[in-house]
Design a protein around this nucleic acid. Sequence first.
DNA 1: AATAAGTGTTAACGACTTGTTAAACTTAAA
DNA 2: TTTAAGTTTAACAAGTCGTTAACACTTATT
Lengths: 225, 225
Amino acid sequence: MSTKILLVEDDPGLGFVIKDNLTHKQYDVTLCTDGEEAYQQFSNQSFDLCILDVMLPKKDGFSLAQSFRSKNQNIPILFVSAKGLIEDKIAGFESGGDDYIVKPFSMKELFYRIEVFLRRTSTPEEETSFTLGAYQFDGNSITLSHRNELKTLTQKEADVLKLLYNNKDRVLKREEILKSIWGDDDYFMGRSLDVFISKLRKYLKHDPSIQIVNYHGVGFRLEIN
Amino acid sequence: MSTKILLVEDDPGLGFVIKDNLTHKQYDVTLCTDGEEAYQQFSNQSFDLCILDVMLPKKDGFSLAQSFRSKNQNIPILFVSAKGLIEDKIAGFESGGDDYIVKPFSMKELFYRIEVFLRRTSTPEEETSFTLGAYQFDGNSITLSHRNELKTLTQKEADVLKLLYNNKDRVLKREEILKSIWGDDDYFMGRSLDVFISKLRKYLKHDPSIQIVNYHGVGFRLEIN
DNA sequence: AATAAGTGTTAACGACTTGTTAAACTTAAA
DNA sequence: TTTAAGTTTAACAAGTCGTTAACACTTATT
């Protein structure tokens, strides 16, 4: 799974240049051009790092940073701004930023600064830990406790279940699941997914309030009652 | 215990100013004025953060950083230099630096940048002495008491066990263990880890409530029931 | 109703990972 | 130099996992 970066920059020219460069470095970049859009994106997805312009339409970079910090404790926030006065930098750090880069800057410097923080955040802890009915899942490999039983899921089983859980409010298309877990390339694949769904249903059968429902011809949804 | 900073700056005036300011912020600052002295200090004490001037007598900041990194992979290194060209910055990051501040700079900015990295490196402290079921481990070389037996573990056996213990709440990836114990470089290694796990299991077998569990394809976890 | 397309489940194969022992190698001390 | 302890590699048995094939069954289209 590639590293997801939220890039917020209202100058479209610069925004695209940065995005292209980062994409080229294998980062998965989401570009927003105003503060509200950025806030939306941040609420809906989980990013590994943010690059924020300071002056933005609708919601400036500093208040964005504060909202982000209150939601996600730890995410690295890099400010990028034309305002290079010391007071501006201070404001950036005080709103929770980890770095403050003054425009114009070199793309190479940006890369290195990004790497510094990704290196230092590579979190050993996965935040994928949740309760599902009678079951308790945690960590990368997931265990399930029912009565005295304890079932350890395999990696792919866990991947599928986590994905279903994280999208429990909507129907996930087969294609989406395949792309997300098996990779963008070969989601023309066979019936593996069905086999995994089948296995998961078996594990979850003791709690009838948890159901993996197939919407014929559309996809799957994890339903919790 | 207060935070220890190694400050290396050959201009005595600036060096003292920075040191005074940092001391005022309750940091425990060691000031060196040349590269060799800095290297000595680093070898003899354990610091939490380094501030390095780039141009230094005897051994420049970049090569210092490289030596430091190879000894203590994790310590934050902040460069401070009058040379502000992009090539200089790149060289700084490539030698392992976390930040590169161009002189003249504001003391306040330096404070914030220091805090950023201290915040991100604060470790939950490692336990080197602990009880594990029927066994008692302590110190660097670890002994195990069961009935009347006493088993002294070797260095690497102890390293692996300590690492497992200090992460007993999660699954440690092979790669993480190898990186942490064998070093960043050659964790492409063979099956040594498996051999050590096997030995540890043998030592621990008398207490079935202690288990080193393998999560296939993922890694290991020490489980205590 | 007949046919095609999609779905649920089981079993089995092959690729890969892991556990273990023994031998080979390395290093430091005697 | 010899010895011994510690570590790594080699080898093989055993186990695990992801995929595919197969078949019964369900749903949609004609």
